[in-house]
Design a protein around this nucleic acid. Structure first.
Lengths: 167, 167
DNA sequence: CACAATTCGTTGCACCGGCAACGAGATTCT
DNA sequence: AGAATCTCGTTGCCGGTGCAACGAATTGTG
């Protein structure tokens, strides 16, 4: 008790300073970067965030099942399901049955889908680069390492994941 | 062209590696920390993310208008409006008209609201601390600086903000 | 002073995403 | 083989949130 000068009536001291609170700052930053990215994939290509992730994943892996799309529970399976349906309807993704396990289906980009991928990806990378341009290469490495550490720890503290956000 | 070995038929190389893509990783991390925090303010106190932010802000500043609640456009004004309504209905926040400008109203915590604030805040800080416990004090300072730099830059790249996430 | 232009906050609308229940298919145990 | 259990993916439902239009109030301008 009796810290410093003020022991007045009801002079409530702030316990949390939002601007310095790590989770808050992480969310602001993540939100801003998402916003910057959305200009590309949403405004210019009509892709939702989950759709963008599906496109990128298929561009990266050639063929995956819907479940593989959410390795660590970052996206909900219902979210993936709806994103894939939308992409299929637009002719950007095709499904082929997996004969070994007929519960799941293989997903792949169509030529149109790949075309979009090849149009969006470089621009997304450009945004990332512009973001990182304010950091030195050394700082970038440090940042990556810190994010890794924190993510591992956050995965321990969070329930069983499934968050949502964007990329 | 002719990079390395493969110039096969249609051997599409991945352009973006999601797991290394900064915006993605930031969103995963932010989502996980939100998830960890939500255990506290949502599950235990029935607060939504915006409600939590309103409570913290009022705990910090004593009295603010609804508009002050979203300084940099982090929350939408409609989001704030609904959060305040909900909190008022629960008797955690009161409004008092601002006679100088009757378009806006002053918001403040009720005793009940402050009680909740004083119960939640320490726990939220504890989560933050557990998160940061995997970093040395030096790393924590570095992290804060990097987040600052990136946030400033992201604010330049993003349209005029308004993202959403949580704290 | 009157009239436009701006600002604060609310609300109807639509969309998005999580949850949980479900059906179809696979796996395991007896 | 048959029954219970588990897994993949879809879908109805609901709460949350952004958007845009709006009413009320204030500010600026002729």
């Amino acid at each position: 008790m009796a810290t410093g000068s003020a022991a007045k009536k009801s002079e409530p001291e702030p316990l949390v300073i939002l601007e310095q609170f790590l989770p808050y700052r992480l969310n602001v930053l993540a939100g801003l970067t998402s916003s910057a990215l959305a200009q590309i994939y949403a405004d210019r290509f009509g892709l939702s965030i989950p759709a963008w992730r599906v496109i990128v994943t298929l561009g990266q892996y050639e063929a995956r099942t819907a479940r593989d799309m959410a390795p660590d529970g970052v996206m909900h399976k219902s979210t993936v399901s709806r994103a894939v349906s939308a992409l299929e309807k637009r002719g950007l993704v095709v499904r082929r049955p997996n004969l070994d396990d007929r519960r799941e289906e293989w997903l792949a980009l169509t030529p149109d889908g790949r075309a979009i991928y090849e149009a969006v990806a470089p621009e997304a990378l450009a945004v990332e680069e512009r973001l990182l341009s304010v950091l030195t290469p050394q700082e970038q490495k440090t940042l990556a390492a810190l994010i890794d550490k924190l993510t591992r720890q956050a995965r321990v503290l969070a329930p069983q994941s499934a968050e949502e956000g964007d990329s």
